[in-house]
Amino acid sequence: MDFHVWLTYLATTIVFSIYPGSGAVNTISNAIRYGVRGSVPAIAGLQLGLSIHLALVGVGLGTLLAQSATAFAVLKWLGVAYLVWLGWTKWREVPQLMKNGVGQEDGPRPALFWPAVFVNITNPKSIVFLVALFPQFLHADYPLWSQALILSVTCVLVDIIVMLGYASLAAPLTHLVQNEKGMRTQNRIFGSLFIAAGALLSGASR
């Protein structure tokens, strides 16, 4: 893969990752409550979901999904249902102060991993975007598998850096959730954002 082609792909991927979506909402919500370190499992979960999308695109299933109205609709409505359920659960969550009386809790939070995986994996727009993006940067003169690997690793690394950036920006807001009222407000704000993300996804088309 030519270096200038990779740079163009890198710039495109950065824009794709920075664009706020359900993954960013998930990361910011976790970072405010658990800090940057505590949100790492959720960021890792997002990357597993993204990696599954990349793998599907790599083996050609992504193209099938992008072209099949039925498959797209099924995955889309699963994503909508999951985001709305996540938002409703967050909205109704009972505030629980940490042992030290503040919003953050020391150490990682493995329980955040799988919900984050499903946040990303149930977003069909990601697959459609990747299906449209990948062919633009593949060259017939180079091995396709190595190019796909480079593009996939670049995409995941960029998204990790962007999500850590979101978490770092959100973590200083932890003081807003140091009491029960603040945590309830935070839960309802991000619950509403998850529901809004589901509403936006419901209007998505191929």
Score class of each variant (00 low, 15 high):
residue 51 S to G: 08
residue 176 L to P: 08
residue 119 V to I: 09
residue 134 F to N: 00
residue 145 W to V: 11
residue 68 S to C: 04
residue 188 R to T: 02
residue 164 L to K: 02
residue 182 G to M: 11
residue 9 Y to H: 05
residue 134 F to V: 00
residue 71 A to S: 08
residue 62 G to K: 01
residue 21 G to W: 14
residue 64 L to P: 08
residue 117 V to P: 03
residue 171 A to T: 06
residue 57 V to E: 00
residue 102 V to W: 14
residue 94 V to N: 07
residue 18 I to G: 03
residue 132 A to E: 11
residue 71 A to Q: 06
residue 16 F to I: 05
residue 129 F to H: 05
residue 134 F to C: 00
residue 80 V to S: 02
residue 64 L to S: 05
residue 172 P to G: 02
residue 19 Y to P: 13
residue 187 N to F: 11
residue 205 S to R: 15
residue 29 S to C: 10
residue 148 A to T: 08
residue 120 N to D: 13
residue 39 S to N: 05
residue 42 A to P: 12
residue 49 G to K: 04
residue 154 T to H: 03
residue 113 F to P: 05
residue 42 A to K: 08
residue 116 A to N: 08
residue 138 L to W: 07
residue 188 R to G: 00
residue 78 L to R: 11
residue 51 S to F: 14
residue 40 V to W: 11
residue 25 V to S: 01
residue 32 I to D: 03
residue 128 V to R: 00
residue 206 R to P: 08
residue 124 P to T: 02
residue 24 A to P: 14
residue 117 V to Q: 01
residue 16 F to V: 05
residue 83 L to H: 02
residue 12 T to F: 15
residue 67 Q to A: 04
residue 89 T to K: 14
residue 126 S to Y: 13
residue 86 L to S: 03
residue 199 A to Q: 12
residue 202 S to E: 12
residue 84 V to L: 12
residue 177 V to T: 05
residue 164 L to D: 03
residue 4 H to A: 11
residue 109 R to N: 06
residue 23 G to N: 11
residue 133 L to V: 06
residue 158 V to Y: 02
residue 151 L to P: 00
residue 152 S to R: 03
residue 124 P to Q: 04
residue 85 W to G: 02
residue 25 V to D: 01
residue 105 E to W: 15
residue 127 I to A: 00
residue 116 A to Q: 05
residue 167 A to G: 04
residue 1 M to C: 03
residue 7 L to M: 12
residue 165 G to K: 11
residue 184 R to P: 10
residue 179 N to D: 14
residue 133 L to P: 06
residue 91 W to V: 03
residue 104 Q to T: 07
residue 8 T to S: 15
residue 66 A to Y: 01
residue 158 V to I: 09
residue 178 Q to C: 10
residue 51 S to C: 12
residue 204 A to M: 13
residue 52 I to M: 09
residue 9 Y to P: 04
residue 24 A to D: 13
residue 5 V to C: 08
residue 63 T to L: 13
residue 193 L to S: 00
residue 49 G to W: 10
residue 54 L to Y: 04
residue 26 N to T: 13
residue 167 A to L: 12
residue 127 I to S: 00
residue 33 R to P: 08
residue 14 I to H: 10
residue 88 W to E: 09
residue 159 D to R: 03
residue 107 G to V: 14
residue 88 W to K: 02
